[in-house]
């Protein structure tokens, strides 16, 4: 009888131990970058190269690595000589997190080129709770968007309408990425776009 009780006691303690393990699984104690790369697998960058740049220079996607004012990105494929593709197999909505938050008027300039299925389709850009959209045209084009941020925000999101593997329009292509927008440059500047343009003039 004593043995039986001892067995059940051990089972009880082991059950508690496994419950604690489940708690540890759902509550990892890791950095945001670790979570994005290893757990959520929404970014292809792990400790990417960092180059010194200021916000006004913008994010040049043709340069390898990330500018110093960007903390990390999600939903963007690896670096290519011209820039980087969005990759829905990582994350449907691209997320770019700045080191410092923006507040008030912000002018976003983005240069991108849509993949074939995305041409003439809507792209939604979100900056915090604000949302702007535009329709893409073929080839690499600049798009300008005005945001008014009521709260400090450091996350910019880009959501294309369609993402697909290149095999959809080129059966010989074995690339497994789900691409949509070829990203060339992204410049987010404090201030309304018109004011910035007039001050530049």
């Amino acid at each position: 009888m004593k043995n039986i009780n001892f067995n059940y006691l051990l089972i009880f303690f082991l059950s508690l131990f496994y419950l604690w393990i489940v708690f540890l699984i759902v509550n990892p104690n890791v950095s945001e970058e670790y979570r994005a790369y290893y757990i959520e697998r929404i970014t292809s960058d792990w400790r990417p190269l960092r180059y010194t740049a200021v916000v006004s220079e913008g994010f040049d996607f043709s340069k390898p690595g990330l500018p110093s004012f960007i903390r990390y990105t999600a939903g963007i494929s690896y670096h290519e000589s011209w820039g980087r593709w969005t990759d829905a197999s990582l994350k449907k909505t691209v997320r770019i997190i700045y080191e410092e938050p923006f507040f008030g008027d912000v002018c976003v300039n983005i240069m991108l080129s849509p993949a074939l299925p995305q041409i003439g389709r809507l792209v939604v850009i979100r900056f915090g709770s604000n949302e702007q959209q535009f329709v893409t045209q073929a080839g690499a084009q600049w798009y300008q968007l005005d945001f008014r941020l009521d709260d400090p925000t450091s996350t910019l999101e880009i959501e294309p309408s369609v993402s697909a593997t290149p095999a959809l329009w080129d059966p010989t292509n074995k690339d497994l990425r789900e691409i949509s927008l070829g990203l060339y440059r992204l410049i987010a500047l404090p201030g309304a776009c018109k004011e910035l343009e007039s001050s530049n003039l």
Binding site: F17, Y18, W20, I21, L24, I25, P28, N29, V30, Y34, Y38, I39
Partner: peptide, 16 residues
Amino acid sequence: GLYMAYLHSHVGDALA
């Protein structure tokens, strides 16, 4: 379970 507990204390991720 013990390995997962160790990984959580060592790396912060039980499923590392």
